[in-house]
Design a protein around this nucleic acid. Structure first.
Length: 244
DNA sequence: TAGGCCATCTGGTCCT
DNA sequence: AGGACCAGATGGCCTA
């Protein structure tokens, strides 16, 4: 699959070398550059002072031309092998750099997940949430906090803390139930096998994440309570971690 | 041992 | 053109 790589062999970026990985078996960028900066000579004897070149008077032309043609073919073959090796090493070094960036990107993503875990309520057994659990937990936790505000608003005359805390356009943004059609897979499917799914009672709020059958809930669940939230909210707050 | 979770590599695609 | 993002593949580690 020819790509831009092939067209850029002549202008290799010698400054952007990767030193992060072992390229044993491959040329490094420095080697690439060093070789490219050399005159285009193949390994072996230098190409200067070719005996019996066509310009020399008195040479017999026909056999000499055949020899020259063979020599040119050999050189072209060696040059092709060399350039393919160079191309391979160039691809390799770029791939190594891309791997580096990808690794770093995933580390950043994990750091963000850790930061998210750190602001979520922790559990007594200090169990570290998995990635998917962290995201689901955060989703439900946000929903529970929003629900707390909503309940608080009902007790406030003339307007609500909710409106003061959240801009109006945020109301529709509150987490709704994952669409079974579109999101069922991404939200997992553990509820069917859940021991407490059968005991789950309908929620008053259809926007609750627990409205999705992927979520189970119940005060008996060890992951049920949110510290700092009203107790009565627990009756409408989903158990946020689906069973597996 | 099977299954879940994770890290890493990789090639493709999109974006700046 | 190069980097970011994404999804699939793969292998290691851990647990029930």
């Amino acid at each position: 699959m020819p790509g831009p790589l092939e067209t850029s062999l002549s202008d290799l970026d010698c400054a952007s070398s990767s030193s992060t990985s072992d390229l044993s078996g491959f040329l490094t960028d420095e080697e690439d550059c060093a070789r490219l900066q050399q005159p285009t000579s193949v390994s072996g004897p230098p190409m200067t002072a070719r005996k019996g070149s066509p310009g020399i008077p008195g040479a017999s032309d026909t056999p000499r031309k055949q020899d020259d043609e063979q020599e040119r073919r050999r050189r072209r073959g060696r040059a092709r092998v060399r350039s393919e090796a160079l191309l391979h090493s160039l691809r390799r070094s770029r791939r190594v750099k891309a791997n580096d960036r990808e690794r770093n990107r995933m580390h950043n993503l994990n750091a963000a997940l850790d930061a998210l875990r750190s602001v979520l309520p922790s559990f007594p057994d200090d169990t570290k949430l998995t990635k998917i659990e962290t995201l689901r937990f955060a989703y439900n936790y946000i929903w529970a906090l929003a629900e707390t505000l909503r309940l608080a608003d009902q007790g406030l005359p003339g307007g609500g803390a909710r409106e003061r805390l959240l801009p109006p356009q945020c109301a529709p943004c509150l987490p709704g139930p994952p669409s079974p059609a579109s999101d069922a897979e991404s939200w997992g499917s553990g509820a069917a096998a859940s021991p407490c799914a059968a005991a789950a009672s309908p929620l008053s709020d259809p926007s609750s994440p627990a409205a999705s059958e992927d979520f189970t809930y119940g005060p008996g669940d060890p992951l049920f309570s949110f510290p700092g939230l009203p107790k009565d909210l627990l009756h409408t707050t989903p158990c946020f971690i689906p069973y597996h």
